[in-house]
Every structure is written in structure tokens, then in C-alpha cells.
Design a protein around this nucleic acid. Structure first.
Length: 435
RNA sequence: GGGGGCGUAGCUCAGCCGGUUAGAGCGCUGCCCUGUCACGGCAGAGGUCGCGGGUUCGAGUCCCGUCGCUCCCGCCA
């Protein structure tokens, strides 16, 4: 007998069906027993009358523990008395595929760390599942947009012989008789794809950062979305791509999950208008300062409080949740960011902030060998260790640019969660390597 | 790397200026209950107050150390 999903039970009124899922609750009364069963599509009530002399099936129901994995056969009966979907299953057969121990170690309001200890139990909650349904939609919508523009998908190596210069700390691994590092970013490889003539590429993959960061928005392994585009005229082209792409993703999410995100997770999905506001860094600081926060001085990046203040100011002035901050000084950017022709102290780069959180860093890259080499030396980069990378630009590299995008951070904001650990299937942090 | 906060029952927490038998709700176990739906009622079990040391007649409470968790800053996406 085939399995029937709970969401489709209404279409099987009067039929005998087989439902498989978890025991959500048992209400064992004198004359009638109820079991609430839950599968990945919803919950349904199972009912069984209890005669004076309880039968074997009654005993089996009495012995059920919450969260046991069960298979149930019964007839679907429409019944207005039932608040849960107006229907119930009249129980005929019950088998326990795997019993749960009597006391579940976590509750929905348990501390996050404890819920992560028992992540598989936490993930059974419908609201936790919704996060991953949304993530699946997000990635599908991203790919739709890339596909429509002829992008190629990349799978770059995560083991590297040298740093990729993201500025973050590196994880070291033993590699036979030498050392290797876990990739902090596919940066160098997606640029190689440009020199390889791929034109436009993207990658969704893990990146590793050995930062001892103890915040709600950092992890040591997270999913990065990387994009690189050839034959651009400036970083403006990259921003134009990104804003259209983000707007498409949010439009699809709003359409498919907007109502559920609002009712279950309490977040509103607002489809952004184009173009996103663009504000040079120094102007952004001035705007943030007007909100009453102390902002970092010239030559420094925005700090988190000023990022939040900036987003608040942009929302007030432009009615927009996104803002591109542009024209970062070379002091806070890596050597491969291209510099402005008219001002060599500023890079053709940008960050994208959403609701006060940095979700992207992007730039036009320096594709000319000599300036790139000079900039690397100026930044005191060990040129020998990245010669393989510099070589990408020796035999005709197209002008190009791109960005790195924190999928995990997007998901956190999109699902109205206050910690990236909530939206990460299995979080990895300085003190978290299991489960 | 710097700073703040928190560790009390399976879970979430209360416990005042230090005071003698450490509490609540949920969960669990048992009994009761005409259809519940956050079912309800009664009873019960369950604690080395993170750990070590100190102060004190007396420490869950104060001090020191330590371990764990957490948030903020730095760093980044």
C-alpha cells in the first residue's frame, strides 16, 4: 500500500490510506484515543474508540511515545468536530517503525546550543523545515536567473596550496608531506574561469574561515554564492546584475512562501525595487552619523552599528531595504580590486547591505598583469605563493568583476532569524564540530 | 584577540539584604476522565544549585579560580 502524505488526505475521504510519520501527541482518554501524527507535509488526527475491554490496538496506542516513527493505516473520515483540517483517520493498523525514548531532550524554546546538540529533533519542527524549503526555493530562483543569462556553474577546489586573500584566517590541513589550506573563497578560481573564457560563472559552495568569531552572524564554514562576469565596463555592471538577481529571488520567494514566512516565522518578504540606492562610503558614514551613531573615521570601513544606522537612514529616505556602499579605499580592500582611474586611493568596489547586515562584497577586478603585480607588492602580499594566480592575467584576460554573497546571512534575514545557526543545516563554529 | 552576560529538575525559569526541608510551569510515571484537539483532574518520581577552593556559626546566594554556553567589538559574507 502506497504512502499518502498528510497534506493530501482531504482528497482521499472515505478511502483507506497509509500514513507514515512521527507521533506528535497522544491523548489517551477513557472511551476514545487520539494520536496526532506528523509528516513533512502536515499533521493529522488519528482516532480509535476504546471499548470497556481495550483491545490490542488500544494497548498499542497507550504505549506510544511522542516522536516515535510510526506507520498508520486507517480510513479518512471528514469530521467537522476535528479542528485540525476537519478530518481524521479512523485507526485500523498501527506499527511502530522506531520508538522514541519517553522524554525528548529539547523543546522549541530550548537554548539554541542545546537544540543544535539534538539538531535532528529540532529540524522536525515545521517552522525549522520551512527555512530549508525557502532555501531550496532561493537557490532554484538564483539558478533560474543565471540560466537565463548563460552562466556556467563552477565547482572549484576547496583544498588550496595558498591563501585566497580574503583577509580571513586560514584553516590548515596536513596534505601528504606538505601543507594545504581550506578555501576561504573561490575568488581566484572564478577569476581563472574568466581567463578561461567562461564569460559568466557562478558557484554555490562551502567556504572556510578560521576566525574565532563569536557572534550571531559568523560561522567557520558557510555557504557562499559567488558570481563573476566578464567583459564589464565597471563595477556598476556587477551591481546591476546583482540587484536584478536579488530582486528576482525575492520575488519568487514572496510568491511561493511569502504568506507562510509571515505567519510562521514572522518576517515580511518585500520585493525590492530597482535600482538599489548606491552610496559612496564617506557619504554613507555621514548618513549613518545623522542617526546618532559614532562612525569610524576616514580610511575605515563601516562597523556593525553604523551599518544598521545606514540601513535605517536609507529606509527612511529611499524606502529601500538594500543599499550598495561604493568607493571603498584601497586600505580596506584586497589587492585585486581595481582602482578608480581618477583616484588611485579608491577601489571600484562595493558592499551590499540588507536590513543593516553586510551580505556581499564585490568589485571590478584588476585584470592587467602589471598593475595587479604592483598592487600585490604594495599590499605586501607574498607574490611567489600566488604566482599561479598572477599568471591568469598574462595571456589576455577580459575585464571582469563579481561578488561573494553570504547565502547563510541572506537566509537569516529572509527567515527573520536572529542567528545564522538557525538557518544552517549543521552549524560549524570555533567550538562546534558535532553533530 | 578585547569586553559584557549566563550556568538551579529532562525542558524553560524563579529563588530578595547569606538563614536551616531549594520551588513553579511544561515534560515524565501511575490512576481517573463521553470526542479530545495546547484535552482536563488527582497523585508521584525527579536536584552533588557546572566544577574546585575560600570567607562565614551558616553559601544556590559573597569572593577567587576553572570549565561550558552566549552576546557585542575586532575580522568578515
Amino acid at each position: 500500500m502506497e504512502r499518502t502524505l498528510i497534506e493530501s488526505l482531504a482528497q482521499h475521504a472515505g478511502e483507506r490510506v497509509r500514513v507514515r510519520g512521527w507521533v506528535n501527541a497522544v491523548r489517551d482518554q477513557k472511551r476514545v484515543q487520539f494520536v496526532i501524527v506528523r509528516d513533512e507535509t502536515g499533521m493529522a488526527q488519528v482516532a480509535l474508540p476504546k471499548p470497556e475491554e481495550p483491545g490490542e490496538l488500544n494497548e498499542a496506542v497507550s504505549a506510544l511515545t511522542v516522536e516515535s516513527a510510526v506507520t498508520i493505516v486507517g480510513e479518512v473520515a471528514l469530521d467537522e468536530r476535528v479542528k485540525l483540517g476537519g478530518l481524521e483517520l479512523r485507526l485500523e493498523e498501527l506499527s511502530v517503525d522506531s520508538p522514541a525514548e519517553p522524554e525528548v531532550p529539547i523543546a522549541p524554546d530550548s537554548a539554541l546550543d542545546k537544540r543544535i546538540d539534538w539538531r535532528y529533533l529540532d529540524l522536525r519542527r515545521p517552522d525549522r523545515r520551512l527555512i530549508f524549503e525557502v532555501q531550496t526555493t532561493v537557490e532554484r530562483a538564483m539558478r533560474e536567473h543565471w540560466a537565463s543569462l548563460g552562466f556556467l556553474e563552477l565547482h572549484s577546489p576547496k583544498l588550496m596550496g595558498s591563501a585566497s586573500e580574503s583577509g580571513a584566517e586560514l584553516f590548515h590541513v596536513d596534505y601528504f608531506d606538505t601543507d594545504a589550506y581550506l578555501a576561504q573563497s573561490p575568488q581566484f578560481y572564478k577569476q581563472m574561469a574568466m581567463s578561461g573564457g567562461f564569460g559568466r560563472v557562478f558557484e554555490i559552495g562551502p567556504v572556510f574561515r578560521a576566525n574565532p568569531s563569536f557572534t550571531s552572524r559568523h560561522d567557520t564554514e558557510f555557504t557562499s554564492v559567488d558570481v563573476e562576469i566578464s567583459w564589464i565596463d565597471s563595477h556598476e555592471d556587477v551591481m546591476a546584475f546583482e540587484e536584478a538577481w536579488v530582486a528576482h529571488v525575492l520575488a519568487v520567494v514572496a510568491e511561493e512562501h511569502g504568506a507562510e514566512i509571515e505567519s510562521v516565522l514572522g518576517g515580511e518578504v518585500i520585493v525590492p525595487t530597482l535600482p538599489f540606492p548606491r552610496i559612496p562610503l564617506e557619504e554613507a558614514k555621514a548618513l549613518a552619523a545623522e542617526q546618532g551613531v559614532e562612525v569610524p573615521g576616514v580610511g575605515h570601513d563601516l562597523d556593525p552599528p553604523s551599518e544598521r544606522a545606514l540601513s535605517a537612514a536609507v529606509r527612511e529616505r529611499h524606502g529601500h531595504e538594500f543599499v550598495f556602499v561604493t568607493d571603498y579605499p584601497t586600505t580596506v580592500r584586497p589587492f585585486y580590486h581595481m582602482r578608480h582611474e581618477h583616484d588611485q586611493t579608491l577601489t571600484k568596489s562595493f558592499d551590499l547591505l540588507w536590513r543593516g547586515l553586510e551580505i556581499t562584497t564585490g568589485a571590478q577586478r584588476e585584470h592587467r598583469y602589471e598593475p595587479l603585480l604592483a598592487q600585490a607588492r604594495e599590499k605586501a602580499v607574498d607574490v611567489d605563493s600566488i604566482q599561479y594566480y598572477l599568471d591568469f592575467f598574462r595571456y589576455g584576460a577580459p575585464p571582469h568583476g563579481g561578488f561573494g554573497f553570504g547565502l547563510t546571512r541572506l537566509m537569516m534575514m529572509l527567515c527573520n532569524q536572529d542567528n545564522v545557526r538557525e538557518v544552517t543545516f549543521l552549524y560549524r563554529g570555533p567550538h562546534r564540530l558535532t553533530p
